[in-house]
Design a protein around this nucleic acid. Structure first.
Lengths: 337, 337
DNA sequence: ATGAAAGCGCTAACAA
DNA sequence: TTGTTAGCGCTTTCAT
C-alpha cells in the first residue's frame, strides 16, 4: 500500500519534491541544463526517470506561446505528389523539432478556410499550403493573424504568400519544346481541371500563349481519365502525332490506352508527361516527362516555414529547377500521316 | 491612436471585459451555452466576434487534460496504401473533432519507439500504427502510459493492441487458390522484405504452409524491384506459369517486365497481385488482384480510436473482408510447356 | 443565471 | 547556482 494518490501523472512539482529542489531548478534542467550544477542536474534527471515524467506540451505551450507544430493543407493524399511532399515535410520538420498536422481540403474552397481556421484553433504556428488558395477568407485569416504561411508547388514572387516551387509555365513549355524539337506539329494536350487547380491553369495558359496549334482536352486526374481523354484525342478528325500530358497520371492512362488499342509508342504516337512520378520510369515504354522536384521542395518549404516560425525570418520565394527526363515514349513523328 | 496594448491576441478576460460579464460566463457560453441567459450569451458572442477571439487550445488542454489529437505512426508515405489510409483517418477523425499528427518510422525499429515517444510528448491522446510494432520499448511505453493505441492492416484478436484489418494469410491463399483453380502448378511468389514487414511475413508463411510447390523470390517494394524479381523468376530452370505477387507494386513491375520482354500476359504467364491499388485496374492487362479494404479500414480505425479516447471504450479487434478482383492478367496456363 | 477565486503544469523575472 | 513567486488562458467549484 502506498499512500501517494492513486495514479495521477506526475508533474513538475512532484519531480522537484522527489529531487529535493525547487520547481525552477527542474524547469532549468529542461530549458538550460548548463545553468544547473552537475550533481543537482543528475539528481533531477534521476527523479524525472523514476517518476516517468515528461513535461506537458500544453503547459509549455501556454507559457512559451509556442505549440511547436505547423499545419499542412493539401487537396488530397490520394495523389502521389502530395504524399511525397508530406513525407519530406514531416521528416524535415522533425529536424527542426516541429510536428506536422495534416488537413485535406478535397479541393473545396470552403474547406480551405474552414480547415485553416481549424489548424489555427488548435494552435498551429504556421501553415503550408499547396498551390494558390482561392478562398478569400483564407487570406483574410492569414493577414489578420499574421500567421506564417508558405505556398508550395509553384513559384510566384508576387504572391501574397512566399512560394517555394517550380515554374509551371516553364514545365509545360519544356515538354512542348521537346515535342516540337522532335518535329511534332499536331499535338494534343491532356490536362486536369482548371477551375480547382491553378498549377494546371498556369501550364495550360503557357501553352495557349505559344504559337503552336494545340488541341486541348480537359479531363480528370485519374489513370482512367487519362485513358478516356486519349481515346477522345485520337478520335479527332486530324489525328495528333503527340500527346502532351500535364500530369504523369494522365500520361500513364495514355500509355495504357495505347497498349489496349494496339497503338505503338513512340513509333505511331509520342507521349510526354509532367511530374516524373516514381513509377513513370518503369512504364512501358518508359515515360518521357518533366521532372518536378517534389522531394526537394518539401525540404526547402520545411526549412522556410521553420525559419519563419523560429526566427521570424519571412522567407523569400524560391524557384526550384525542373528537368526534362527524355526516355522512351517520345520520338520523331511518323514520316507520313 | 488607440490606447489599447499594441497588438496582443485577445484572451478570455478581454472578451469578458468587452461583454461586461465575468470570465466564468464567457467560459460557460463556450462549454455550456444552455446555462447562460439568452441575451447575455448574445452579448458575449458578439464580443468574441468583435475581438476575433478563439480559445487557446493549449489553455483548454491544460485544464481539460485533453489535446484532441491522435498520432499516426506509418512506415512511409511513399506507398499509396499508407497515403490512402491516412487520408481516410484524417477525414474521419475530423468528424470526431480530432486532429491527426503524422510521424513516419521509415521501417526502423528504433524510430518506432522514438517517434511514439515524440507523439506522446506533444500530448497525443491515442496512437494509430500500421502493422505489428517490433520495438519492445514501444510496447513498454504503451503499457506504462495506458495510451489508447490501435494497430491496422492486419487482424489478430490475440495481439497486445486491438487490431483493425484484414486476414493477410487469407489474402495470400485467396490469390493462390485463384491460380491453382485455373490449373497452375508452377507458381513463383514475389514478396517484399520479411524482416521489416510482418504483413508480408504472414502472407509468405501461409503460402509456405500450403501443400503447393512454390518458389519464393524476395525483393523490394518498388516497381523496379518487381521487374528485377520477375526477370529472376523467369530465368529459373523450370519456368513458372504464374507469378503471385504479394504487393500490387511488384505486380506492376512484373507486368512492365513482361511488356518489355515480349511475354504475353495472361496467355504465356499469369500475374496476380495483392492490394488492389487505384491504378491496378488500369494496367495492361488489367491486374487480377486481391482487394484489401484500405479506405474502410481507415474509417473503422478512426472510429475505434475515437471511441477509445472519447468514451474509454477499448475497441474489439475487427476483421474486414477481402475480395478477389478477377481481371485480365490471369488465365489457365499454356497447354504445354 | 452569474461572479469570485482557486487551480491546471509550466516558465521566467527577481532575489538571495 | 538555486529558490520564490507571479503569471500564461482557461475551467471549475462554490457562492450569491
Amino acid at each position: 500500500m502506498q499512500n501517494t494518490a492513486p495514479h495521477k501523472r506526475a508533474n513538475l512539482r512532484d519531480v522537484a519534491a522527489a529531487a529535493e529542489v525547487s520547481v525552477a531548478t527542474v524547469s532549468r534542467v529542461l530549458n538550460a541544463p548548463g545553468s544547473v550544477a552537475r550533481d543537482t542536474r543528475l539528481r533531477v534527471e534521476d527523479a524525472m526517470a523514476r517518476l516517468h515524467w515528461t513535461p506537458s506540451a500544453a503547459a509549455r505551450a501556454i507559457n512559451s506561446g509556442r505549440s511547436r507544430f505547423v499545419g499542412a493543407l493539401v487537396p488530397t493524399l490520394d495523389h502521389d505528389i502530395f504524399a511525397r511532399l508530406l513525407a519530406e515535410l514531416e521528416s524535415r520538420l522533425a529536424e527542426h523539432r516541429l510536428s506536422l498536422v495534416v488537413a485535406t481540403t478535397r479541393r473545396r474552397s470552403a474547406d480551405e478556410a474552414r480547415k485553416a481556421q481549424g489548424l489555427l484553433d488548435i494552435g498551429a504556428e504556421g501553415l503550408l499550403v499547396s498551390g494558390a488558395v482561392r478562398a478569400p477568407e483564407f487570406h483574410a485569416l492569414i493577414e489578420r493573424t499574421r500567421l506564417p504561411a508558405v505556398a508550395t508547388s509553384w513559384y510566384d514572387p508576387g504572391y501574397a504568400l512566399p512560394t517555394v516551387g517550380y515554374d509551371n509555365r516553364a514545365a509545360a513549355l519544356m515538354a512542348l519544346r521537346h515535342l516540337t524539337d522532335l518535329g511534332h506539329r499536331r499535338i494534343a494536350v491532356l490536362h486536369g481541371p482548371l477551375a480547382t487547380n491553378d498549377r494546371t491553369a498556369l501550364r495550360v495558359t503557357a501553352l495557349e500563349e505559344s504559337d503552336h496549334d494545340l488541341v486541348f482536352h480537359a479531363t480528370g486526374m485519374t489513370i482512367a481519365d487519362g485513358r478516356a481523354a486519349t481515346r477522345a484525342a485520337l478520335a479527332a478528325p486530324v489525328r495528333p502525332t503527340a500527346l502532351l500530358c500535364l500530369s504523369d497520371v494522365q500520361a500513364t492512362g495514355a500509355l495504357q490506352e495505347c497498349l489496349h488499342a494496339g497503338i505503338r509508342v513512340p513509333e505511331a504516337l509520342s507521349v510526354i508527361g509532367t511530374d516524373d512520378l516514381p513509377g513513370s520510369a518503369h512504364l512501358y515504354p518508359a515515360l518521357t516527362t518533366v521532372h518536378l522536384p517534389v522531394g526537394r521542395m518539401g525540404r526547402v518549404a520545411a526549412d522556410a516555414i521553420a525559419g519563419w516560425v523560429e526566427a521570424q525570418r519571412r522567407p523569400e520565394a524560391q524557384l526550384l529547377d525542373i528537368a526534362l527526363m527524355a526516355r522512351d515514349s517520345t520520338a520523331a513523328p511518323p514520316s507520313e500521316a
